[in-house]
Design a protein around this nucleic acid. Structure first.
Lengths: 268, 268
DNA sequence: CGCGGAATTGAAAATACTCAAAATTAGTGG
DNA sequence: CCACTAATTTTGAGTATTTTCAATTCCGCG
């Protein structure tokens, strides 16, 4: 309901952001992306590509899309045309079952690819929603497929990305299938830590972009359990938390808990 | 311990199976596969390929491998060279965490592809173990990648297969994240039913190839819970079971339970 | 026929959930 | 900018589903 206001203030904010395109004139409002200039190109699809090949990739990349908090990038059932690479901001993807209950299947951050689950059915399989004001590169999949024939390095990297997504999901299955609540939560925090570290941010201090409810849903726990877990971790000196700003005070112990080597007292 | 005996009797059995290769002389003991002649080629990698392209695929396919029950097709940590397509038999794949606990991430049957999670790390990420005497086609991934450049249809289908694997795992996340035990088990049965139906087998009567323990592990439940569930379903007239031979007596109601539309009484 | 692994069943315990209320935070309008 | 309202989060108490531990039973196999 108040998304409109958000979107408006966000579009004002956008004006202030310097455009990174410099190679060619920018057509407004359809911003074109430039992988070479993107800070995420070491993590994203163009990883490891020669400059010439990055240019070819740039040519097929569609416009950028900006989304305000709570905007849907796509929704389950919509026809699949594009993959999306997150430029900045954060997203969540979730599936909705027949009974209308949602399961969050992932949280995505800058440099990560969205929409790969849609390739097989020609329709998006889940909803992708921005957790904050965000920007993505639109990657028309048909064009990408054509490019695969010309840039084998790109194809190989794409396969690696899809493969890691499979691996990531297997790790979540492991988490949901045989970890207790406290271990799940430790894994969650340590995983966030590592991903921020990979992007040059602090591994011990970051903002949780999602609500407690989202965390709980992702971890297969209720919001109350997440809240209690957080309180307990705080009491144990493992973390400090102010609103959604987390500081990991004892990353060593958190990692041990995530690995299952160490455990703390019951919920009490 | 009696695996050796199994393997021996199995290798005897193998002698009796007529070889399907006819194009060229078969080098023994490295059996070559022929996709065109394979009963699974409508479900497997060659799906939708023109005859000429199937031939090209055949040329790169490595030997067939036969495995006795409990044999490992590959183990986590081994270098990744091949994908494997199941010709007949059943497999399970499982990950082992730092604490040594396993989580089964999938059960694979004829026509399904194994090893896709290994592409990103150049090593297998999980163990793949035969649930019964089985056979796979070895698909050297390097060769497959070369073929992708020449057979775009094959590439597209490969992407669809990887994408469906992502989708499948998302569905398991949904199952583990927010379903009660009885719903999980109903989903499990209905899923098996559909996959057998797709292969021309009865959707209402089939053998569970895995132990109760494997089922429990996969569903995030204990073996005791699975056993109780089975007893309850039997008492309700939903299924009949003799050892590992299941008959689904009320597929409609099972589907409703799987969808979350209907639920039965608590564990009592 | 007896051994051993797998499966079933029962009783007790524990983890996490539900329901409910209070406290905190974010958003909105004056 | 502040105050008010709505939403989110925290905390508590009681409950329920599933687990754990233990004892049988069932079956395949030697």
């Amino acid at each position: 309901m108040d998304i409109h206001t958000d979107a408006h203030s966000f579009s004002q904010m956008i004006q202030a952001i310097p455009l990174l395109n410099d190679d060619k004139p920018v057509s407004i409002p359809a911003l074109k992306a430039s992988c070479a200039a993107c800070s995420m190109h070491q993590l994203c699809l163009p990883m490891g590509l020669a400059d010439a090949d990055i240019d070819r990739l740039d040519k097929i990349i569609g416009r950028r899309r900006r989304l305000a908090k709570d905007d849907a990038l796509y929704r389950a059932g919509e026809p699949f045309r594009n993959l999306y690479a997150v430029r900045f901001g954060h997203f969540k993807t979730y599936q909705v079952n027949a009974a209308g209950e949602a399961q969050i299947t992932g949280f995505q951050m800058a440099g990560e690819l969205l929409g790969m689950d849609a390739i097989s059915g020609d329709r998006y399989r889940c909803d992708a929603v921005a957790l904050e004001d965000s920007e993505v590169c639109e990657i028309p999949f048909g064009n990408l497929e054509e490019l695969f024939g010309q840039v084998p390095t790109l194809l190989r990297h794409f396969h690696r990305i899809m493969s890691s997504e499979i691996t990531r999901e297997q790790n979540v299955m492991l988490l949901l299938g045989n970890m207790r609540a406290e271990q799940r939560f430790a894994v969650f925090l340590v995983n966030k830590s590592a991903r921020y570290a990979a992007r040059g941010y602090s591994p011990t201090s970051f903002q949780l972009r999602m609500s407690r409810e989202d965390i709980g849903n992702y971890l297969g726990l209720t919001i109350e359990s997440v809240s209690r877990l957080l309180s307990r971790f705080k009491k144990m000196g493992l973390v400090a938390i102010d609103k959604r700003e987390v500081t990991l005070l004892d990353l060593v112990r958190l990692k041990a808990m995530a690995a299952g080597t160490e455990q703390c007292s019951p919920m009490a």
